[in-house]
């Protein structure tokens, strides 16, 4: 370990080796052992800061009353329950063929098919309603269609007559 790494470690975690990350502890202690003066100089400020912080630690207090209060509150509080397997939230494609949940899926397919049919019906009805208000267009389209049919019939008739001849 280089001096800069050691200094960074101490500046981050403090001077007490117990707070250093486990994977760096051996290297850092080896550095401190080999370079005692530099390590002591680096540690000095952070040792003081650590001691200052120690003064702010919460003293060990008696928590019996608090524990009793929390236990009493827990007795008056119901626990949340886990979702049963029948819940829709647990539907999954891999469960599709399982006997005990086949029925709800069949019902779902029926619902889907019915929805599809209704949608198609509404779609056609809507399409029809678009042409209901355009009589002129309808008539023109019909006429054009009839003309086409007539001309085709004529051509066919001509060809036919030619062939027959």
């Amino acid at each position: 370990m280089r001096h800069e790494q050691y200094r960074e470690l101490v500046n981050t975690y403090g001077a007490h080796p117990a707070r250093w990350p486990e994977d760096m502890r051996v290297d850092a202690l080896t550095y401190a052992y080999k370079n005692p003066e530099q390590a002591a100089k680096t540690n000095a400020g952070d040792t003081i800061l650590d001691k200052a912080l120690d003064a702010g630690a919460l003293p060990k207090t008696d928590n019996d009353l608090l524990m009793a209060r929390i236990l009493q509150a827990a007795k008056e509080t119901p626990q949340q329950t886990a979702l049963p397997i029948e819940s829709p939230a647990n539907d999954h494609p891999t469960q599709f063929l399982a006997d005990d949940i086949k029925a709800p899926y069949v019902l779902k397919w029926k619902t889907l098919a019915a929805t599809l049919l209704i949608t198609m019906g509404i779609g056609f009805g809507w399409g029809q309603s678009m042409t209901d208000n355009s009589d002129y267009l309808d008539a023109e389209t019909l006429l054009a269609f009839n003309n086409d049919t007539d001309s085709t019939a004529l051509t066919w008739s001509d060809d036919n007559s030619g062939t027959n001849q």
């Binding site: 200094r7 960074e8 500046n11 540690n43 400020g45 952070d46 003081i48 800061l49 001691k51």
Partner: peptide, 28 residues
């Protein structure tokens, strides 16, 4: 976060270095 916290604490506590014994030595 930890490094910045300690750096800021050193600055904040620097005026009280005598009462906190010595002051804060080498830091980056």
């Amino acid at each position: 976060l930890l490094a910045r916290a300690r750096q800021n604490l050193r600055k904040l506590l620097q005026p009280h270095k005598k009462s906190i014994v010595g002051g804060f030595g080498e830091h980056s």
